[in-house]
């Protein structure tokens, strides 16, 4: 095979890569690997903010899910948690199960991928932020509150991720930014 032919194949392959829409990539693949993060968490979700640091490891499972498990700590306490993301029925649909050490039953979420429209009009070298928005399947009771939770996971690129959790006390309609965490690859 001539050198020109090799060059042509290379150009075609590279071009195809550029033509693939971002949302068609496997979103679960973003979770894989080690992450370290820091941010703020509210004590008992509605209390004062405290610094938090986390160290987590993401793994892809053969069943087509991604498990995201690790350990987070405030200055006073630390605990393990896991967050398993499972592909849903629709193209952009997901489900998730969150478990926290020392906190009762695992909590189920359903989610959807939302890719920022603004990315289309952004300069070509600007990364496209990809978001996974999860809402809780069934509100739960804690400390006399009925909690509804919404978790947003955003990937600015393969190496940066942000997790935010907003909770609402359905009894009082009080809303709280319970958790904000910025992650990067170590």
């Amino acid at each position: 095979m001539s050198r020109h032919m090799w060059s042509s194949i290379l150009v075609i392959v590279l071009s195809c890569g550029f033509m693939v829409p971002a949302h068609a990539e496997d979103m679960l693949g973003f979770f894989a690997g080690k992450w370290t993060g820091s941010g703020f968490v509210r004590q008992q979700q509605f209390g004062v903010q405290q610094k938090i640091k986390c160290k987590i490891n993401g793994k892809l499972r053969q069943s087509g899910s991604a498990i995201f498990a690790g350990r987070c700590a405030t200055a006073g306490k630390a605990g393990a948690f896991s967050f398993e993301v499972i592909r849903g029925e629709g193209e952009d649909q997901y489900q998730a199960v969150a478990s926290y050490s020392g906190v009762g039953q695992p909590i189920g979420y359903k989610g959807v991928e939302l890719t920022e429209d603004t990315a289309q009009s952004a300069p070509t070298d600007s990364p496209v932020t990809r978001n996974l928005i999860f809402t809780i399947n069934r509100p739960y009771l804690r400390d006399g509150r009925k909690i509804h939770s919404l978790i947003a996971i955003s990937f600015r690129d393969q190496n940066h991720m942000e997790i935010r959790e907003m909770v609402t006390d359905l009894y009082t309609n009080e809303i709280s930014d319970a958790l904000t965490l910025q992650f990067a690859r170590p």
């Binding site: 820091s38 610094k51 938090i52 640091k53 986390c54 160290k55 350990r71 987070c72 700590a73 405030t74 200055a75 006073g76 306490k77 630390a78």
Partner: peptide
């Protein structure tokens, strides 16, 4: 406090009790 947070995240560390644990 940063050190306490980092110590919390080391493997095999179960808890760190310090003045920052006080409530």
């Amino acid at each position: 406090r940063e050190m306490v947070l980092d110590a919390h995240l080391l493997d095999k560390v179960e808890a760190v009790f310090s003045i920052f644990s006080l409530q």
